[in-house]
């Protein structure tokens, strides 16, 4: 049984059909990169996986549990699926450690001592132990994104979704964030990334999914996919980004 199982997922915004039937199975511990042009539906797919968008048709299962619709409360959902955004979205009025502790305290009702311990552990994992009392505005983009990753990890999710997490960063800061993701991948975290970092997709992913016009156009292991694309669309896409 796959950890994440998406069946026949459809999503329209008004007249515009963005997802035209997505089937996707992801095993525990797998790292899957979703690539494709902007407008191909990759971010919408990611946002459906944690119900930031409600899809119109199809089902999403996590382990054996149905995840979509009203099957799970936001509280339950957050302990299954974590998300990191392109624009970090840290809470600017809270310090680094307060950002990380908020959800365990409020959603899980974790005692403060334990929440702090958890927060310190995840911040150590992303290399941000030195900055626990800083405010987001005092950090670089790369540091902010690492805190955002820690904040998602604090809820101990089964899957981590990453929506173009390096796209808003200066080039010299991309590496530190990708290294954190690589570490997570090595530890066996299930990662689903929408990314423009082709090198990262190739080197770290177990599988790459190429989306085109609302469908999964091609998918497979990164070596094959990048070196011998089967479809002209993927060929063209690879040529345009490499």
């Amino acid at each position: 049984m796959a950890l994440v199982s998406v069946k026949d997922l459809h999503k329209s915004f008004g007249e515009l059909e963005v997802l035209k039937g997505i089937d996707l199975e992801i095993e525990a511990g797998e790292v899957v990169s979703i690539i494709g042009r902007s407008g191909s539906g990759k971010s919408t797919l990611l946002r459906c996986l944690n119900q930031l968008e409600q899809h119109d048709w199809g089902t999403i299962h996590l382990a054996d549990q149905r995840l979509d619709g009203t099957a799970m409360s936001p509280g339950e959902l957050s302990q299954n699926v974590g998300m990191v955004f392109q624009s970090f979205n840290l809470f600017p009025h809270k310090t680094v450690i307060e950002n990380v502790m908020l959800a365990p305290l409020v959603v899980k009702q974790t005692p403060r001592e334990e929440a702090r311990r958890i927060a310190e552990a995840v911040l150590a994992k992303v290399g941000m132990s030195e900055k626990v009392d800083a405010y987001p505005a005092q950090l670089s983009g790369g540091q902010q994104q690492r805190v955002a990753i820690a904040r998602a990890l604090a809820m101990n999710p089964k899957v981590l979704l990453c929506d173009e997490v390096t796209s808003a960063l200066d080039p010299e800061l991309v590496g530190e964030v990708l290294r954190v993701l690589e570490d997570l991948a090595r530890e066996g975290m299930t990662l689903i990334l929408v990314t423009h970092e082709m090198k990262f997709a190739r080197d770290v992913s177990d599988r790459v999914v190429f989306m085109h016009q609302g469908r999964i156009h091609e998918s497979g292991d990164p070596q094959t996919l990048f070196t011998r694309p089967r479809t002209p669309e993927l060929n063209q896409f690879i040529a345009s980004v490499l």
């Binding site: 930031l52 409360s73 339950e76 959902l77 957050s78 699926v81 979205n89 959603v107």
Partner: peptide
């Protein structure tokens, strides 16, 4: 959105 994905109502 950040609050929502962290599970806050």
């Amino acid at each position: 959105q950040a609050a929502r994905v962290l599970g806050l109502n």
